[in-house]
Design a protein around this nucleic acid. Structure first.
Lengths: 254, 254
DNA sequence: AGCGTACTTTGATAACGATCAACATCATTC
DNA sequence: GAATGATGTTGATCGTTATCAAAGTACGCT
């Protein structure tokens, strides 16, 4: 920790803080993000790729459906929702993105983005030109491997969500959702049992195929039965095992 | 057509039919499958990769959940369902695969397959060792591009299905499903308005998050209102526009 | 050809979540 | 610190789809 601070101080002399900040090599998310599983030497190849950082304010759109696909974004801090708006105006949340996760893979197929991506809080992302990422991944096998892993993870995660949407009842959905969030917070070094929801009941409901009132009711029921404590957006998981029993299922879509 | 037959006959003299059959260069699915968008020269690099074909009888399992991931399969003929079995024994169909489509991408992340893949009819697949495909795609940019496109397509398709499962009512789901099948049959040179369902009502229901009785009832209703004609597994789409109106939505998950 | 099995259709009833509505709480702004 | 709008909670009722049940149809097998 001390060492990192020293490096950052040094950087303020030799180069701008911004330039250093976007170096994957020093990024504290390197075990979650693109560099995961890569050797330090290979990660250095990434440094040149990830040149720009971008701040996105709460409620701002990072990516618009319909816009040309050029960049992937890695979430550095904050969180996002991805949503699809259908022809007839229905708007559905298809995912939530947290730090270290990649945004934009939906655009590869048609060279056009399919989903909107909106910040749930003030956030920061690293922009990665996809064309250059493809190039580099032809030269760096570990990067190629990791890119494939990330895409596969997205595919598998969505399959889990399909099971949730296709066969689970409201309580199972909400329990699965909370446990998924818990796991992701823990993976990022935060508490797995106490956290703040960054999204509204409506967004949770949209994601889980439920109405906001149902989400609220189920959470109140979990509160009454002492599975969780919930007050507005503040969640404490009191009985993880009990929550797990409610889900009755293995695949976690988050 | 005549030309193809000649080539096949010739092959029986110079090499075994099997060896020729697995060459992507001559495959009639090359516009749907991995070779799509690749130059003939690049496709030749695939020929060496796709060495074995495999026949799978109706009801047989091509891929088991939990088994080690080594191969991708491209469907050459027939069709498959992919399903996830959850811890508590629920079984959910997560997709249907038709000719030219790739099976096995779920295994990349963890090196272990997540879904079961079962033949809906007697079918044939080409096996592709994934490690070698990765290698080759580092050398052949067009192959890399196409692999990424296919994975992205899977991601986008699943997002569409999430919208279906999350926000559509029974009639909309079934209508979307039928139109999706129609489109896929047309892409393969078959009639878009008249086809045989390869899957049971129960499998359709599982996929759409409905019970088999609901699927049956909705189809009967569509039959009564002259949108389709349906007798058991034989479908005729009488009024595609009308069906489209029932869905009211743009994104097609199939 | 006849039998058995798997699949499909249709009906009656029940349950779950949606909808409508009213109120409470929180955050933001002036 | 009061006012406003967004978000969240809770209650009453309704509607869609699940469930249970029974009969009908197609298909494979000997």
């Amino acid at each position: 920790m001390q060492a990192i601070i020293e490096i950052q101080r040094a950087s303020e002399i030799t180069c701008t803080a911004k330039e250093l900040a976007v170096r994957c090599t020093n990024c504290n998310l390197r075990e979650l993000c693109l560099p995961q599983g890569m050797t330090p030497e290979d990660v250095q190849r990434l440094n040149g790729l990830v040149t720009t950082r971008k701040r996105v304010k709460k409620g701002e759109r990072l990516q618009h459906a319909g816009e040309a696909f050029k960049l992937l974004y890695a979430v550095r801090s904050g969180s996002f929702k991805t949503c699809i708006t259908t022809e007839d105006g229905r708007d559905q949340v298809t995912g939530f993105k947290m730090s270290g996760e990649l945004i934009g893979l939906d655009g590869i197929e048609t060279n056009t983005h399919i989903v909107d991506v909106i910040a749930l809080e003030d956030s920061e992302v690293c922009a990665i030109p996809f064309a250059r990422l493809e190039e580099t991944s032809r030269e760096v096998a570990s990067l190629q491997k990791q890119l494939h892993r990330i895409m596969s993870r997205e595919i598998v995660g969505e399959q889990g969500l399909m099971v949730l949407l296709g066969s689970m009842r409201a309580e199972e959905r909400v329990a699965t959702f909370l446990l998924g969030l818990s796991r992701r917070f823990r993976a990022r070094g935060y508490s797995a049992t106490e956290f703040h929801l960054r999204m509204t009941r409506e967004e949770i409901g949209s994601y889980l195929g439920l109405k906001l009132e149902t989400v609220s009711r189920v959470m109140s029921r979990f509160h009454e039965t002492k599975l969780i404590q919930i007050k507005q957006k503040h969640v404490v998981i009191l009985n993880p095992k009990g929550l797990k029993d409610v889900t009755g299922i293995a695949i976690s879509p988050l």
